[in-house]
Computed example of a mutant assay.
Amino acid sequence: MHKSKADEWVYYVAEIGHELRTPLNIIKGFAELLDREVAGDLNPKQRIYTKKIMRESDALLETINQLLDWARISSDQLDLALAPTDLYLMGLEIQGQFELRMQDTGVQLVNDIPKGTQVDLDPNKFRQVLVNIVDNAFKFTPPGGSITLSIRDLAEGICLDIQDTGSGMTPDQLGHIFKAFDTASKNVEKEGHGAGLGLWIAKSIVEAHGGQLTATSTLGEGSTFTIYLPKEADEL
């Protein structure tokens, strides 16, 4: 079957992404060895340079991973492995993943999800949804602020809210945040990390579950991302 130009572009992005990821992981690995002083003591300037290599390697790896996710989703290769999943326990996992970030930024990540809240979903892919949204919230929330995960129970499903006390967004920004490769979207996913695809990927994964991802925001007061999920597995 003849591939369209769009299909060929997706294919080439995926191939190039995989080729780039291997040497980048090697660079990052050697930088980590240097940082642990496996090859000898570092002077203060060398330690600064090593930390910068590690930080920029992480940023580039995030960009590559986002492009690979975009390629998979765009080519309809997003296969879900549904299983009963405890959202409270997943909230604890997310807290653990961002523990160092909380220490570094002074922003608290609060898990207000009730214990025993279970939904049929793909735990690995849904965890990526939460990581993408929470990571973006940290970028916009000043020290002393908070990001809270909470649940609203509806008759036909549940709403998982991720609410931050950050800088918020203008109506124009809010209208672009879920668009792939959009300049305004990249500005919302700031600090040079990723390809501006994190929120688009999160929305695509939620919709693959039969749910919806929406956002509300007030400039200067913060934003709330809401994930709606149907309760019954046969609705997914």
Rank of each mutant, 00 (worst) to 15 (best):
A6W: 10
E8N: 03
E8D: 09
W9D: 07
Y11K: 03
Y12I: 04
V13K: 09
A14N: 11
E15W: 10
E19M: 13
E19C: 04
L20I: 09
L24C: 00
I27N: 01
E37A: 10
D41P: 07
K45W: 13
R47C: 08
I48N: 09
Y49G: 02
K51V: 06
K51Q: 14
I53Q: 08
R55W: 06
E56F: 05
L60I: 01
L60V: 14
L61I: 03
L61D: 13
I64V: 10
L68I: 12
D69R: 03
D69Q: 11
W70H: 01
R72T: 01
I73G: 00
S74F: 03
D79T: 06
A81T: 04
L82G: 00
P84R: 06
D86R: 00
D86A: 00
L89N: 04
L92E: 12
I94D: 01
Q95D: 05
G96V: 05
F98R: 06
F98M: 02
E99W: 08
L100E: 13
R101T: 13
D104R: 13
T105Q: 04
T105R: 08
V107N: 06
L109E: 05
I113D: 06
K115H: 11
Q118C: 01
N124S: 09
L130K: 08
V131G: 01
P143R: 15
S146N: 04
S146D: 14
I147W: 08
I151C: 07
A155L: 14
E156M: 09
E156D: 14
I162Y: 08
Q173S: 14
I177F: 07
K179M: 04
A180K: 12
D182C: 10
A184R: 11
S185C: 14
E189Y: 07
K190W: 06
E191I: 08
H193I: 15
G194D: 11
G198T: 02
I201E: 02
A202L: 00
I205K: 02
H209F: 09
G211Y: 00
L213V: 04
L219N: 07
L219Q: 15
E221F: 13
E221M: 15
G222S: 11
G222D: 11
G222T: 11
S223N: 14
F225T: 09
T226F: 10
A233Y: 13
E235V: 05
L236P: 00
